[in-house]
């Protein structure tokens, strides 16, 4: 007897923090087994939990008090009133359950964000059965809730804005889907792990920067010899030259067709270089780089990005910007 006692008393000495941590870990593991991570979830009895709310306990207390009153006053109608409340509670359990069951959640697209701003997570709520879902509350663990009805529509897109903190790949924890409809006395919910993530770019921080012009890079330099910005000189007219480029004044003078030559301003590519950032702090470097990527893109300049181990050839445009930001985010 005493030998069986000792392990439990030893367990009692385990620090409480450890114990709750252990319980939480067990709970997580159990949850992961029961509701694994998916991109598509159908809420059914396997995934749904149900429990009275605080108000539900108040309601049950009311029913109990009326029950006692019914007994003590020997009043069968008051007694019946408490039975009614009890029955309504049972029906409400089923109705609340039914309100969530059959609801489908699809992971949709995500939109990247800069650290400290809100990332967009698009979800799709859909009916799998011919019934309405009311007051469905969606809440990512640690974020604010959003409430939705799915009444006539078969599916509705839901956009959730989650505030990001750290650069990198942001993977929110489980999504809680809750409903207390119709009476608010019973809560049905499910924790689903949606396979969703989004990129969080570094927070752009402005800094002084001398753009490194590096024209020696043979295969990366973008030279635009036929640009239109700057007059370069004249050459003999060729048949395919556009007429607007012909130097008509020269033709009038000498009777010979010359074509004016121009070259573009952006004949040299800018390089955003890891090494040239005026700090040693890694995250700050990334933030500076991010700022300049945004700045150059805004001005539609051609630039390349040089990170340790990663090199993105000079280019311009949104796609290029996205590629650079992604490289910064994933660094």
């Amino acid at each position: 007897m005493s030998s069986s006692m000792s392990p439990s008393s030893a367990a009692g000495k385990v620090p409480r923090r450890f114990l709750t941590g252990y319980i939480r870990a067990r709970w997580q593991r159990w949850l992961d087994q029961r509701i694994p991570s998916t991109r598509h979830a159908l809420l059914d009895q396997r995934r749904l939990f149900i429990f009275p709310t605080g108000m539900g306990f108040g309601y049950l207390l009311t029913a109990f008090l009326l029950f006692i009153a019914g007994i003590n006053y020997d009043n069968s109608l008051i007694l019946n009133f408490s039975f009614f409340l009890g029955s309504l509670f049972v029906v409400t359990i089923l109705q609340t359950f039914s309100n969530l069951s059959g609801l489908m959640i699809d992971a949709g697209t995500t939109e990247p964000a800069f650290a400290g701003t809100e990332a967009k997570f698009n979800l799709l709520l859909a009916k799998s059965r011919k019934k309405n879902h009311y007051a469905v509350e969606l809440q990512w663990h640690g974020f604010e809730a959003a409430s939705n009805n799915l009444i006539e529509e078969e599916k509705i897109p839901v956009q959730m804005l989650l505030k990001t903190e750290k650069r990198g790949v942001f993977r929110p924890q489980r999504l809680r889907i809750t409903s207390v409809y119709p009476l608010g006395i019973v809560r049905a919910w499910s924790w689903i792990a949606l396979d969703m993530e989004c990129l969080v770019y570094p927070k752009p921080i402005a800094c002084e920067l001398q753009a490194q012009v590096d024209a020696t890079q043979a295969d990366g330099t973008v030279v635009i010899p036929e640009g239109k910005d700057d007059f370069d000189g004249l050459r003999n007219y060729q048949q395919t030259d556009p007429l607007s480029a012909v130097d008509w004044k020269a033709y009038a003078r000498v009777g010979q067709l010359y074509t004016k030559r121009f070259h573009g301003l952006q004949s040299e590519a800018r390089w955003l270089d890891w090494e040239s950032m005026p700090t040693l702090h890694v995250e700050l470097k990334l933030s500076y780089l991010c700022y300049w990527v945004m700045e150059y893109s805004r001005k539609n300049l051609v630039f390349g990005l040089q990170l340790p181990g990663i090199r993105i050839a000079p280019d311009a445009g949104l796609e290029h910007q996205r590629r650079c930001l992604e490289a910064l985010a994933r660094y």
Partner: peptide, 14 residues
């Protein structure tokens, strides 16, 4: 609808 659904159980309890 809710109340109609709860009446049978109520009667049984009564």
């Amino acid at each position: 609808k809710l109340i109609l659904q709860s009446i049978p159980l109520m009667i049984a309890l009564f």
